[in-house]
């Protein structure tokens, strides 16, 4: 094969090497290859695989995201007793270090797998997949994935979840959706956590937080709630029930296939 005089260029492949072709030559003599792949194709592929796992086992997977300390684990602790009668729940916990959160969940008699990411600031689909192998998905109806506390990176990685829930605690300020648009735009539900502190703080306006969410072209419900007082937990559980009902109609054909 001779690339110098061009004798390997035939009518069949000429379109590849001409201007705009897939193997066009650059001025420097390099071969240009158009790829047009998503950079996270590998993660997305694994995420799709995780989603198939969930659907085959009829598991609804909910990804919880927030800054550290917004109350993801506390919300789960307050929610688990309300779900225990109807659903078999499991939790995957993501943190840089420690089993602390998984132990808090296990204290409620709920299986919990802790992923310690070391220095990684987010969970990815491969980490979740490894954790799933430690769970009997046939014994799970509802899986919560508690992502690493971080308002930036977790939004970039699909895990295979069916829904994203982003928590914003009232001590963080009502302009967080404006400052961290990507993670709030990704949410199917925004929970305004620690709502029992609203009267104490006085400067967090739920309507303002909701307006910032709408400005992200999001129709996600914005629900104030408090793990401590129980405020809003009924609406949160109703939302989970609705997701579960919707997921059953979607997942059923996948299971029968």
């Amino acid at each position: 094969m001779c690339d110098t005089c061009g004798c390997n260029v035939t009518p069949g492949n000429r379109h590849l090497v001409e201007a705009g072709g897939r193997l066009e030559r650059t001025a420097g003599g390099a071969v240009a290859v158009d790829v047009l792949h998503g950079l996270l194709a590998e993660n997305d592929h694994q995420a799709a695989h995780n989603r198939e796992h969930f659907d085959r086992h009829c598991v609804l997977a909910i990804n919880l995201m927030s800054s550290p300390g917004a109350g993801k684990t506390a919300l789960l602790e307050a929610t688990l007793p309300r779900l225990a009668e109807r659903y078999r729940v499991a939790v995957v916990e993501g943190d840089l270090e420690t089993e602390n959160d998984a132990e808090r969940i296990r204290a409620h008699g709920v299986p919990a797998i802790q992923i310690t990411t070391g220095s990684a600031c987010h969970l990815d689909a491969h980490m979740l997949h490894t954790a799933l192998h430690q769970l009997d998905l046939d014994a799970v109806d509802l899986l919560f994935i508690e992502n690493v506390g971080n308002l930036v990176c977790p939004a970039g990685f699909d895990l295979g979840q069916h829904a994203n829930v982003t928590l914003l605690s009232v001590t963080e300020g009502d302009d967080k959706p404006e400052k961290y648009p990507i993670i709030f735009r990704a949410a199917e539900l925004v929970l305004i956590s620690k709502s029992d502190l609203l009267p104490v703080l006085g400067d967090f306006q739920v309507e303002k937080a909701e307006r910032h969410v709408r400005e992200l072209a999001s129709e996600a419900p914005v629900l104030p709630c408090s793990a401590r007082s129980g405020d809003g937990l009924d609406a949160w559980v109703d939302w989970i029930d609705a997701q579960r009902a919707r997921n059953e109609t979607v997942a059923l054909p996948a299971r029968e296939a």
Binding site: A30, V31, A32, V33, V35, R214, A217, S218
Partner: peptide
Amino acid sequence: YHTRLCSGDELILARVELLR
């Protein structure tokens, strides 16, 4: 606010120039 994104969330490997 009922809009759809046409462009802005891409993260794409568009082109690679290779030396043989």
